[in-house]
């Protein structure tokens, strides 16, 4: 089974975000595998353990992504492809085009990705990729079963479970709860440095940077307003409700 995993390196969710000159400062920040992509890596490794085959990690981003990719290789992925040519960077539209170009060059049965990245949080890249490749996708899975050609995905639906079936080849995205990602073993870390990591450029992929240029533009980046101190309502229940409604109407203006 040829298993592909799309992976992005993101800020550690524990990091404090500092905006400087309209950009998020990256100096001295710890980067991690996007947690949703980590579920995808773990699920890919479990599929490999169950069905055999190879796990290949594909990624679009700067060379610092290598650390996240090596971690996935240390967890047990077999090889990786990193598009770290700046001509290939852009928005979700661009990234989906680049991933599709990489993936078209190789055989695959299933593609796994995170449901979204914890930095931009758009949740678009994976489903756009499925569209680019003309294959079905099942998103936000909390359980995945592959039997022969048959893929069954389970996902939360407002407290119920929705069961979606598809046939290979398919793209699925991982939601929290899909699995508990393993720690890379220390022997795995040592082996990871010897596993193949291929760097690809726009030329390698036959992509014209002009055709894949971003369709969106970031016009401003700012932090949310600091949270104000909360207010505890006093008095009997009726008074409290009256004050709450009034406050929602006049102070926070969330109801008309």
């Amino acid at each position: 089974m040829n298993i592909l995993v799309c992976l992005k390196q993101t800020f550690d969710t524990e990091e404090r975000i500092v905006v400087e000159n309209g950009r998020v400062k990256e100096d001295g920040v710890k980067f991690i595998i996007n947690p949703y992509d980590e579920y995808a890596v773990e699920e890919a490794l479990r599929l490999k353990e169950e069905h055999g085959g190879e796990v290949t990690v594909v990624s679009v981003g700067p060379s610092r992504f290598e650390e996240a990719i090596r971690t996935a290789l240390a967890m047990g992925a077999d090889e990786a492809i990193l598009a770290d040519d700046p001509a290939l960077f852009g928005d979700e539209y661009t990234v989906a085009k680049v991933l599709a170009a990489i993936i078209r060059q190789r055989p695959f049965d299933i593609i796994l990705a995170g449901n979204q990245a914890v930095d931009d949080g758009s949740g678009q890249v994976a489903v756009r990729l499925a569209e680019e490749l003309g294959i079905p996708h099942i998103s936000t899975l909390t359980k995945l079963v592959v039997e022969g050609n048959q893929v069954t995905g389970y996902r939360d639906a407002e407290g119920d479970v929705e069961v979606v079936q598809a046939t290979l080849p398919v793209l699925v995205t991982a939601q929290q709860g899909l699995n508990e990602p393993r720690y890379p073993s220390l022997i795995g870390i040592r082996k990871a440095s010897k596993k193949p990591l291929t760097h690809v450029t726009a030329a390698d992929l036959g992509l014209n940077p002009e055709e894949i240029r971003p369709r969106t533009k970031v016009v401003d980046t700012f932090l949310p307003k600091p949270k104000q101190a909360g207010k505890i309502l006093q008095g009997d229940l009726q008074e409290q409700v009256r004050e709450l409604v009034q406050s929602l109407r006049t102070v926070d203006k969330v109801i008309g």
């Binding site: 290598e66 650390e67 090596r70 240390a74 720690y183 890379p184 220390l186 870390i189 990871a192």
Partner: peptide
């Protein structure tokens, strides 16, 4: 990179 990865994993 290997030393940092070992440190981070531990």
């Amino acid at each position: 990179l290997e030393q940092r990865m070992i440190r981070d994993t531990v």
